[in-house]
Amino acid sequence: MNIFRFAGDMTHLISILVLLLKIYATKSCSGISLKTQELYAIVFVARYLDLFTDFISVYNTVMKLVFIGCSLAIVWCMRLHRVVRRTYNKDVDTFRHYFLVLGCFLLALFVHEKFTFQEVLWAFSIYLEAVAILPQLVLLQRSGNVDNLTVQYVFFLGAYRAFYILNWIYRYLTEPHFGRWIASVAGLVQTALYADFFYYYFISWKNNAKLQLPA
């Protein structure tokens, strides 16, 4: 464990807590893409299949349970909570995310570390996580004025994988045979997708104005 990875995990945890806070405090999920949340639930379930078979550390197991639990709770809340579900605007959340699931699964069938059930699903979850934010970014661009908590949620979600890139560089430099290419390349793509969001986030922060993404 290195500081970059720990910072990444904490930033990831913060992003999920910010989202839960927004939904719980405002009893609303307006501006949040249910499709992105569903993709994240699939990512965590597909990636943490080894939860009960491989023990790495208490930290690892606890964080996996938290990520799976929170992502399922958010999807449940947005779909079934009698108050919150009414604030979900499916007319703007129209990204066809099933194509992302299919595309990532097909890619995982061809590019993986080992052709085993668990490894193919692990690669699938890595690819899917890289593109899972797309429905949310599209929704942000569609719904002009976005509340602050939603913007913070997307910011922390983007920042966490940037920390992971530093972690992979650090591990590549310090561990002899560290070759985590699937995760590193997908992580670069994932962070690059946030590039324009980060740019407009920084501009809005500098001008102390609300985030305005170009439509």
């Binding site: 990875r5 995990d9 491989d54 790495i56």
Partner: peptide, 10 residues
């Protein structure tokens, strides 16, 4: 429980 380091990251 086998200890693996194949995917030790979250």
């Amino acid at each position: 429980l086998k200890l693996v380091d194949s995917h030790d990251e979250l």
